[in-house]
Nucleic acid binder design. Structure first.
Lengths: 251, 251
DNA sequence: CGGGAAGTTGAAGAGCGTCAAAAGTAGTGG
DNA sequence: CCACTACTTTTGACGCTCTTCAACTTCCCG
């Protein structure tokens, strides 16, 4: 039983390009290997993984799977950005996470996905059939142990997000969000300052429990306060990180 | 690395009374064993657990541990109710869960607890030193596997709670909360209808991202609508479960 | 360049929070 | 057994933050 949606530190190679799981060397060239599930494996063991893995590419907005659909695969993000979310019957949406290279997804406590997943930007992922991966987990306890660590980390992140959703103001939420993106960029080996914010205002709103308009107004407000500066192509400069830190914790 | 806060199905024996982890039979008499970590173990293996377990009793409001404190132990609730929460510097509080018999807690991705834990009612727990438990996990992969399943379940629950916190109205939140308590009571072998609500309005508010007053008003409103009835001693009757279901999903 | 989506800004309104006080409940001791 | 206190819950009045609805602007991508 059971695999997850996970996030963890990542590499800093600019270009991913994963190959399909053929006979050659799919995983051995993986540039985010050291941060994901496979970090627990040696080269011989990675070969076992190669045998069952295949590659998926998604354009912006393309769905990966839907909530309640049979959970046949688990995935590892190798490039791009993925959003995962849950919906209410009337269409209200809550993002439960944004996933970047090195992150793991495909939770299936029962036999169906607990959320929907969709590409934010052009993305590539590697895909494992659950039925084939589970025996490997049994064979390599280190891998299962790693999964447990990743799940543990995910739980802590989820609790932090609950604190944000339940108790922070719009201003605090947006500041926290920007700092989180910055920290995660560093984990992936990117610069911490002009950060890339590839998702739309609407997506951000659905992640923070706000509307598009409130997110936009709050960006404007932070900009006018000198805490951030909006660059072109969706980049944001954290002009005053200390101020953001203070705001995010309840100034 | 890594242990968790977990919840899972439970027994229905009315009286817990766990003994301290002495030489006798501490765990063999455990009445929530089949729903927790130890469900994966046979009698001989449980004996190994007995050797390292001890018992904790807490009165209402007594703390178990605080956020950021070194995570020396993991715990299993055997009786009562525990609340876990995170705080902002100015005192705002977000409950991240209510734990009942059979639930597991003691997350430690790094070496400190990610949240604080405190008794709601008089409670008993069994306590394992992490340093001693981890070798056991290594020895009994079934146990680690079970932990992974429990963590997976916890992640799904956390995501459902994010949807509630970010996108539901006060009315929907309270209806969802009551239904959740009812479902979990059934898992523990209790009746589904007059449910016990041992926590204060303030605690409920901090769980749902609302104030005490709003929770109270919403209870009154649901009562006047005929969906629930408030009994004495903190029991709530779900008079119209179907109506609550509809409300909880966005009527 | 032009058209459609995404983002920004404005004005008005609703839902929930805040402040305050009354009513209920529990525990304590005379 | 009742009185006294302290806390929790409920109810009321008001205000503020965020949402809603709408128009305008900017950014892309063909």
């Amino acid at each position: 039983m059971s695999l997850f949606e996970i996030r963890k530190m990542s590499a800093h190679l600019p270009d991913p390009a994963p190959r399909t799981g053929g006979p050659g060397s799919p995983c051995s060239a993986c540039n985010v290997r050291h941060l994901t599930l496979c970090a627990a494996l040696d080269d011989r063991e990675v070969a076992d993984m190669s045998a069952i893995v295949s590659s998926v590419e998604l354009g912006p907005g393309e769905p990966l799977f839907d909530e309640a659909e049979p959970a046949k695969h688990v995935f590892n993000v190798t490039a791009g950005a993925i959003k995962i979310y849950k919906l209410l019957p009337d269409g209200r949406r809550q993002m439960t996470g944004f996933l970047f290279p090195g992150d793991f997804l495909g939770l299936a406590n029962d036999e169906t996905y607990a959320y929907s997943a969709e590409a934010v930007t052009f993305s590539t992922l590697c895909r494992f059939p659950r039925k084939l991966l589970e025996p490997l987990l049994e064979r390599y306890p280190r891998m299962e142990r790693r999964l447990l660590g990743m799940a543990s980390h995910e739980l802590a992140v989820a609790q932090e997000q609950m604190l944000l959703l339940g108790r922070k103001t719009a201003r605090e939420k947006v500041a926290s969000f920007l700092l989180m993106l910055s920290r995660r960029a560093v984990q992936r080996g990117q610069k911490d300052n002009p950060i890339s914010v590839p998702m739309s205002r609407n997506d951000i709103g659905d992640f923070l429990g706000l509307t598009t308009e409130t997110v936009s107004r709050t960006f404007t407000q932070l900009k006018q306060g000198g805490a951030i500066a909006l660059q072109s192509n969706g980049k944001v400069e954290l002009s005053d990180r200390a101020a953001l830190e203070v705001i995010s914790e309840g100034a």
